[in-house]
Design a binder for these strands. Structure first.
Length: 746
RNA sequence: GCGCGGUUAGCUCAGUUGGUAGAGCACUCGAUUUACACUCGAGAUGUCGCAGGUUCGAGUCCUGCACCGCGCACCA
């Protein structure tokens, strides 16, 4: 009568993998395979019908899952399981991200450690083989770990940002944007990472505050304006000085000073007036180094100053333009210039200041601004097909109009602020692992002249390579966020017009960490509004960072990390999921400790014993639909549960999962178990037959509904109890596809 | 510099539209062998950062301040 299993404590280790396999083999992760009677009748294209879709933010194939992934997977699985139980044809599409620069950097490091070889020693082809092997292994680990988390995603639709279909989408998008004049190749100052030997976007920069020296000097004895700088070595590339048009130096505007000897080279310094200069700050004048400073490049452009004088190269060494300093590292050149200024008595002041230096997010290299020929996306170009709006406009209006809602909503302000400050997006990278830029070049003799010096370059931009010979593809790859930007629709089959695309796009929710709001969310809005004219998702749910018990970031060096797979082994996935959800509001960082997780392991066992009690005390009696013989007391208890479920459903609809989880936890443990089960002991022992019958039905009813409501949060233990208790004869009887405890639509 | 968030019980945090402060952990006392020791019952603990204001009533709304954290910009 009572399954023996109930006589022992709940054992997640024995249960979870078996239950996951049961779900996966049922095929119900694929919305097309959901039981027809509940799911397909009401669902037709186009998609005003009951369907729900989430595309999983693809974990990077750089290693293993961490607690942040566990939180993401739990939140998404809760939404997906909830909607599925509510009768929505539900798709959760999983995938992984090649994470170009991150993966390449990781593999380069490994290879260097083991073999003392660089990627150049191996060559492009061999190196890519190594990266792919690493990515494959990492992928396999990650996808099996996603299964351990209980994620009910549709593996039959799994995607990779670098697989064939996604590559086609990327090339198609590149061509479209190029044809519309949104992608251009330009010689501009970019962020160069000397360590990674590649350009990076503005968003890939991390500022670090360091102490540095601020030097105030003059180019020569008779130069009238003192100049301050933290980088004396770049002054070898100065072509001018900018002062405020109405400031104290305005009398010099328009003059050019020839400096025959500045630390061994000659300079020609023109004084220009520009309102970008703050007359109150520093000396009220800025030495202009157009090739090694973003603002100087802009100012130089406005005043037609020389933008060719490059004194630092890609290896962060001085070029031959630096005269006697040529070949020196920047730090050495800095010392040399400072020493020279001292000897010549041109150094007026030397002070210690706190200074933000730009470093590359992935490699930690100190970013060197350099002018280079790169590919960019123009965010300020009006697009004819989009009513003359710019990409910035499209990003802004998607949120302004309310088509996209961001939770918590204060991130909307941060989003707008970012757009306001956005510059053209540099999308070309000098790394090997990634989407190769779909551009080909061919040298062509100009006119009839056969002189090789008069060749000009032809450019071909296409989805496929040109058929004629003689073309060479651009060696660069695309910023990984270019392919990520297409994720919601490239995964559904775009550029083909697939049924999936029609059915599941726009997706309903994009759930991810707030730290990639700009990197990813904004880029998805950009790409989707441009390519499809629609938004990629309706709601953005941003979760916070998972920290340790004391609120510290989890890190390898601190050794305070909690591994979600260890949690699953030690306490069960359900316990870990519950611990991540209760008390976790969107946008707020949360702390998690083993103590907290242990508490929810106990909860799973509590639920297990509640079920045991109910099964033991109802002796095989079935739950009777429409039973009407409840006593007054039991009818009231039933009503209270119903009200609680309505309350919880409202929380679910409003994305208050932390609250729904806590209410269910409290109701199951401290009301159902502590009060209702306790008083049932007396009733079932000494009540009238009517009272006993009523109470048995109440117990069956309440357990049934509680299991349903708790399933999205703790899917394994609820399904296991359900299977043991109900012993469904067909897979349709699984809790995973059972109805949510209430049917009211709220 | 501009902007955002936080400040509530010893700890970690909830508190949806203003109506006599909540949870988990920790703590104290007690219970118990037929659902569960991965247990049960009882209990203690907070001038809700500070100062004003609006209101019959403020943890909740408004203003100012302090401290902590974050984003962006500047970074000559």
């Amino acid at each position: 009568m009572i399954p023996d299993k109930f006589l022992k404590p709940y054992n997640p280790q024995e249960t979870e993998e078996r239950i996951y396999n049961l779900w996966e083999e049922s095929g119900f992760f694929d919305p097309n395979s959901l039981p027809t009677e509940r799911y397909t009748q009401s669902t037709t294209i186009p998609l005003n019908a009951k369907r729900f879709s989430i595309v999983m933010p693809p974990p990077n194939v750089t290693g293993v899952l961490h607690m942040g992934h566990a939180l993401m997977l739990t939140l998404e699985d809760i939404m997906v399981r909830y909607k599925r139980m509510r009768g929505f044809k539900t798709l959760w599409l999983p995938g992984t991200d090649h994470a170009a620069i991150a993966t390449q950097a990781r593999v380069e490091k490994d290879i260097y450690k083991a073999e003392k070889k660089s990627r150049h020693d191996l060559g492009r082809e061999e190196f890519l083989k190594r990266v792919e092997a690493f990515a494959k292994e990492s992928h396999d680990t990650i996808t099996s770990q996603i299964r351990v988390m209980g994620a009910s995603c549709d593996w039959s639709r799994e995607a990779y940002t670098l697989d064939e279909k996604r590559s086609l989408a990327v090339r198609t998008m590149f061509k479209m944007m190029h044809d519309d004049g949104l992608i251009y190749r330009g010689h501009r100052i970019v962020n160069w990472d000397p360590k990674g030997q590649t350009t990076i976007s503005d968003d890939e920069i991390v500022y670090e505050e360091r102490k540095t020296k601020l030097y105030t000097f003059r180019y020569s004895k008779d130069f009238p304006i003192p100049i301050a700088t933290t980088r004396p070595e770049t002054k070898l590339g100065d072509v001018g000085v900018a002062v405020h048009p109405d400031g104290k130096w305005k009398q010099y505007i328009g003059q050019t000073f020839e400096i025959p000897d500045f630390a061994g080279i000659s300079l020609s310094i023109k004084i220009v007036g520009d309102s970008a200069v703050d007359p109150e700050f520093g000396t009220g004048a800025v030495g202009l180094t157009p090739t090694h400073s973003f603002t100087d490049w802009e100012i130089a452009g406005k005043h037609n100053l020389n933008k060719e004088l490059v004194v630092i190269n890609e290896r962060a060494k001085m070029t031959d333009k630096a005269g006697p300093h040529s070949g020196k590292k920047v730090a050495e050149a800095r010392e040399a210039v400072v020493a020279w200024l001292k000897t010549e008595e041109l150094l007026e002041k030397e002070e210690e200041v706190a200074h933000n230096i730009a470093t590359a997010e992935r490699t930690g290299g100190v970013v060197e601004p350099l002018p280079k020929l790169q590919w960019f996306i123009n965010v300020n170009e009006p697009i004819a097909e989009r009513e003359g709006k710019t990409l910035k406009d499209l990003m802004r209006e998607a949120v302004q109009s309310g088509d996209i809602k961001i939770l918590p909503d204060h991130f909307e302000k941060i989003y707008f602020h970012w757009i306001d400050n956005l510059r053209d997006w540099c999308i070309s990278r000098q790394i090997w692992y990634g989407q190769r830029i779909p551009v080909w070049y061919r040298k062509k003799a100009k006119g009839k002249n056969q002189n090789a010096k008069l060749e000009e370059e032809e450019i071909y931009v296409g989805v496929e390579a040109p058929e004629e010979t003689g073309w060479e593809q651009d060696p660069d790859t695309l910023d990984t966020w270019f392919s990520s930007g297409l994720w919601t629709f490239s995964t559904l089959g775009w550029p083909e017009k697939t049924k999936d695309l029609e059915m599941y796009h726009p997706t309903d929710v994009l759930e991810t960490g707030y730290e990639i709001l700009f990197f990813w969310i904004a880029r998805m809005v950009l790409m989707t509004k441009y390519a499809l004219g629609s938004v990629p998702f309706r709601t953005v749910y941003l979760h916070g960072t998972v920290r340790d018990g004391q609120g510290r970031k989890m890190s390898k060096s601190l050794g305070n990390g909690i591994d979600p797979i260890d949690v699953a082994k030690k306490f069960g996935t359900d316990a870990g999921r519950m611990a991540l959800i209760v008390g976790n509001t969107p946008g707020t960082d949360m702390n998690i400790s083993e103590d907290k997780i242990r508490g929810y392991k106990n909860f799973a066992n509590k639920l297990w014993n509640i079920a045991r009690f109910v099964v033991e005390n109802t002796k095989g009696e079935a739950l009777e639909e429409g039973f009407s013989g409840y006593t007054e007391r039991d009818a009231k208890l039933r009503e209270e549960r119903h009200a609680m479920f309505i309350d919880v459903t409202k929380d679910m609809e409003a994305y208050r999962f932390y609250m729904a989880a806590e209410k269910l936890y409290h109701d199951a443990w401290h009301t159902f178990a502590d009060k209702i089960l306790e008083e049932s002991k007396k009733i079932l022992k000494s009540g009238t037959p009517e009272e006993q019958k009523s109470r048995r039905q109440l117990l069956l009813h309440t357990l049934d509904k509680l299991l349903r409501a708790l399933h999205p949060f703790i899917p394994f233990v609820t399904e296991e109890i359900w299977q043991l208790w109900k012993q469904p004869s067909a897979k349709d009887g699984m809790l995973m596809v059972a109805e949510w405890p209430i049917s009211e639509s709220l």
